[in-house]
């Protein structure tokens, strides 16, 4: 099992623990990741805000580089995931568009390969049973709210490995790890991440509602698969008893008893260690 790996810009900065945990967990699970050589930023929410062709060309360069590796791409950031898939699907539908992209990026681009989110790869390619076989320390007793947000599940014609209104892949994975995956109202709501700098008050209201929904079902932590959601919920959460925000890869690492996992949890703004200690997991 081998994929071209698109880490995305946050993996060396705000989401360093997501990058490290993804790479280590993949290694242990036998998923080989070969970084796309000289990959560039996908433009996130800002590329398509300014210009459609610019947004598509930024992602097309990465898709063309991965094609050169002869591999499908694995992505950990939900925002990069949607952006790359948008371009890839459009290129498959229109030969003219594909030609135009190849011209703009100055590289051959045939759209022969596909793009997958790591959650999709682990749940559907590898299979949850393979993860279960390797569990050393089940996450018994942890009450978790699996948060999918926007781009992992919407729009379904572009991403679509799970249901857009009630996705369950993370729920199934966390249950298999031994935790309690809670059913809750906020799982596909928007956290407002793209407005956190420019319209802080809107983003604060949206992220506050996600946190409230998780509290409503007595979740002890929220689990995410996107560095943008994580940065927003982890760094901007206000109030006294803040909820830890964990990456799904960190939890796999914990259940597999990967030694480095304690170093990942130290990177969070909301300290997750007391919670993990309480359940004897660290």
């Amino acid at each position: 099992m081998k994929y071209a790996f698109y880490p995305g810009c946050t993996q060396e900065s705000t989401a360093i623990e997501f990058g490290r945990s993804s790479e280590e967990v993949c290694r242990r699970l036998g998923i080989e990741l070969e970084e796309i050589p000289d990959w560039n930023c996908c433009g996130a929410s800002s590329g398509h805000f300014l210009d459609d062709d610019l947004a598509h060309a930024l992602t097309a360069r990465n898709l063309a580089l991965a094609e050169g590796q002869g591999l499908d791409t694995a992505i950990v950031c939900a925002a990069c995931y949607l952006r790359l898939r948008c371009t890839q699907i459009k290129a498959r539908e229109s030969a003219d568009f594909k030609k135009k992209m190849a011209e703009v990026i100055g590289m051959p681009y045939e759209a022969t390969r596909t793009v997958r989110h790591l959650l999709d790869i682990i749940v559907n390619d590898l299979g949850i049973e393979e993860v279960t076989k390797k569990i050393v320390k089940p996450l018994t007793g942890l009450r978790l709210a699996p948060y999918y947000g926007c781009y992992l599940v919407r729009p379904p014609e572009i991403v679509g490995f799970d249901d857009p209104e009630n996705p369950l892949s993370m729920d199934r994975l966390l249950t298999a790890l031994g935790a309690e995956a809670l059913d809750w109202a906020g799982k596909v709501d928007c956290c407002g991440g793209s407005l956190i700098l420019s319209k802080e008050e809107i983003a604060m209201k949206l992220l506050g509602e996600v946190i409230e929904d998780a509290r409503e079902v007595d979740a002890e932590a929220i689990v995410v698969a996107c560095p943008m959601c994580h940065a927003n919920l982890d760094m901007r959460q206000s109030g006294k008893n803040r909820l830890p925000i964990l990456y799904f890869t960190e939890l796999i690492g914990l259940a597999l008893d990967i030694e480095e996992s304690s170093t990942w949890f130290k990177k969070h703004m909301v300290d997750a260690i007391p919670l993990l200690r309480k359940h004897g997991l660290i």
């Binding site: 900065s13 360093i16 610019l54 990026i105 590289m107 990177k267």
Partner: peptide, 24 residues
Amino acid sequence: RGKLKFGPHRIKGTKAMNDIFQKT
């Protein structure tokens, strides 16, 4: 928490990037 990068990472394809911005 070691999350602040003090310098940019400059990719090798900066010319390609500039072309992409110019052309679009």
